[in-house]
C-alpha cells in the first residue's frame, strides 16, 4: 500500500501539471492547454447534450420552406456558431447550406469557438448551435431589442425561414 500510494501521489501531480502546461498526450494534439480547453467546453452549452434538442434531423428542405424561400429577394447573411465538440452543429450547418443552395441571396459564415471566441462574447452566445441573421447593411436582426437567436436544431427550418422573412 505504501508503494501504491506514493505512485498515485506522483501520478496525480504529473497528470495535473501536464494538463495545465499543455503536454497533450494522445492521438490528436490540439492547440492550447487543457485547462483552457476545459474553460471552452464548460462555458458553451451543447443543447443536445442536455436533452433539449434532437440529435438527428432531416437535412432536406420541406416544400413549404422551399416555396417561402423562393420569395426572398433581399440579401441575408447567417452566422452559425459552432465548436469542435458540438454534436449537432454539423446538422445545423448542413441545413443552412441547403438554404444557400436554393437561394443565392442567402449566405452563411461559420464562427468557430476554438478560433473566433471573441464573437461568442460579443453576441453573448452560450448555447451551441446558435444562428444569428444580418441584413444587407450588416445590421443584426433584433427582436424586442434583443439579438434574435435561433438555438438548437429542433424545427430549425421553420425557425430559420421565419427569421429570414423578418429580416426584410
Amino acid at each position: 500500500m505504501k508503494v501504491s500510494s506514493i505512485v498515485a501521489f506522483i501520478l496525480a501531480f504529473v497528470l495535473l501539471i501536464s494538463g495545465i502546461y499543455g503536454l497533450n498526450i494522445g492521438p490528436v494534439s490540439l492547440e492550447g492547454r487543457q485547462y483552457e480547453q476545459a474553460k471552452q467546453i464548460g462555458s458553451y452549452i451543447c443543447l443536445s447534450c442536455i436533452g433539449l434538442t434532437g440529435s438527428t434531423v432531416s437535412h432536406t428542405l420541406t416544400e413549404d420552406t422551399l416555396n417561402r424561400l423562393k420569395k426572398i429577394d433581399y440579401p441575408v447573411k447567417i452566422w452559425i456558431f459552432t465548436s469542435n465538440d458540438c454534436p449537432t452543429c454539423p446538422d445545423a450547418k448542413a441545413i443552412i447550406l441547403n438554404f444557400t443552395l436554393e437561394n443565392s441571396n442567402i449566405t452563411y459564415e461559420e464562427i468557430r469557438l476554438e478560433t473566433q471566441g471573441q464573437f461568442f462574447d460579443a453576441y453573448a452566445v452560450s448555447e451551441l448551435p446558435t444562428l444569428i441573421f444580418f441584413n444587407k447593411d450588416g445590421i443584426v436582426l433584433r427582436k424586442d431589442n434583443f439579438i434574435h437567436k435561433v438555438v438548437g436544431i429542433d424545427n430549425l427550418q421553420k425557425k430559420v425561414i421565419e427569421a429570414i422573412e423578418m429580416v426584410s
Binding site: 501531480f13 495535473l16 501536464s18 494538463g19 495545465i20 480547453q37 474553460k39 447534450c49
Partner: peptide
C-alpha cells in the same frame, strides 16, 4: 465550475488523454 465527467468525455472525443481532469481529481 466544469463537470469532470463532461470534460472527460469531450477530451476523449477529441482524441486526447484527459490528463488535466484526471490530474485535478487525482490531486
Amino acid at each position: 465550475i466544469s463537470c469532470p465527467i463532461g470534460l472527460l468525455q469531450n477530451f476523449v472525443m477529441n482524441g486526447q488523454v484527459p490528463t488535466y481532469v484526471l490530474g485535478t481529481m487525482g490531486a
